[in-house]
Computed example of a mutant assay.
Amino acid sequence: MILTHAGTSPDIHPDAWIAPDATVCGDVVIGAGARVMHGARLVGEAGGRIELGRCCIVMENAVIRAGARHPCRIGDHCLIGPGAHVVGATLEDQVFVATGAAVFHGAHLGRGSEIRVHAVVHVRTRVEAGAVVPIGWVAVGDPAQILPPDRHDAIWSVQEPLDFPQWVYGVARDEPAAMVEVTRGLSERLGVHGGDTDAGS
């Protein structure tokens, strides 16, 4: 399904292919030879562009999102695995994001880096060119520290000052009603999708 959102329709190269049950919504530019497979979702919110480079492959049920504060650029010859989640990040060319991996707002993945199965790249984290985040491990910080998931205290010591709630939602972590503010803001921003239309109509 190709949807116009907030007056912006996806720009899809004629040589790209989008599965009929995938969703491409809003400010999304898709390059030549790209393939967006079944159940994948690419959503460029108002003011937040997604750029998908030449011969990029987005596998089944992957999610790629961008918002006004966090655009998303994926370079040429990248592979986004099934069920992976990439939001508001920059991926240089030839990056591999494996099945179930998550890459968050403001992350930057260098050319040829690999984010393996169920690995996580936190907000504002820079993974160097050619680096590997192993299966289930966590990359956090700039430059990234790559740590096993059982090192929670070490991960948190780097992650806490990156301030996910403030960076992503503009809400202070210590705000007493933080979740109320986060969900209220998201409700308002996502509510505009009620006006999305089929880009072919």
Rank of each mutant, 00 (worst) to 15 (best):
G81L: 06
A89M: 01
A40G: 10
C78L: 12
T90M: 08
L52M: 06
E60N: 14
G83M: 11
M59I: 03
A34Q: 02
G47R: 01
G47L: 09
C72R: 02
L109C: 04
M37I: 10
G106S: 06
G110I: 11
E60W: 11
T99D: 15
R65C: 09
V36R: 05
L91C: 10
L109V: 02
E60G: 08
M37C: 14
F96K: 05
A98G: 15
Q94C: 13
E51G: 02
C78D: 13
G75P: 05
I50K: 00
G53A: 10
G47V: 10
G67C: 14
V86K: 01
M59L: 14
I50P: 02
V87C: 01
A32Y: 11
G83T: 07
A89G: 09
P82I: 10
E45M: 14
D93M: 13
R54G: 00
T90E: 12
N61L: 12
A32I: 10
F104S: 06
M59K: 13
G31M: 12
H85G: 01
C55I: 02
A84P: 06
C78K: 07
I74D: 00
L91F: 12
G33H: 07
I50H: 04
I57E: 02
I50F: 11
G53S: 10
I80C: 06
D76E: 14
V58A: 03
I80E: 11
A32L: 10
G44I: 06
F104N: 07
I74W: 08
V95N: 04
R49C: 10
C72S: 06
V87G: 00
A66D: 00
R65D: 09
M59G: 01
H108R: 14
G31Q: 11
V63M: 11
G39I: 07
G53Y: 03
A101N: 04
A107I: 13
I50C: 07
H77G: 04
C78V: 09
L79V: 13
I74T: 03
L42T: 04
G48D: 00
V36F: 08
A66H: 02
R35S: 15
R69E: 00
G53R: 01
A101R: 01
G44K: 07
A101S: 13
G33L: 09
Q94V: 07
L42E: 07
G83V: 06
P82W: 10
R49Y: 07
I64E: 00
I64T: 04
L91R: 05
H38F: 09
T90H: 10
R54N: 06
G39E: 04
V97I: 15
M59T: 06
E60L: 12
R69D: 00
C55W: 09
G47N: 04
L109D: 08
A32F: 11
A101V: 01
Q94A: 14
I74E: 00
C56E: 03
T90F: 08
G44W: 05
V86E: 08
R35Q: 14
G106K: 08
A84W: 00
M37N: 13
A102E: 05
V86R: 01
R73V: 12
M37E: 13
F96L: 15
E60H: 15
V63A: 12
A102F: 09
E51S: 03
G53W: 03
R49G: 08
A34G: 07
T90K: 03
E92P: 08
G33T: 07
A107S: 12
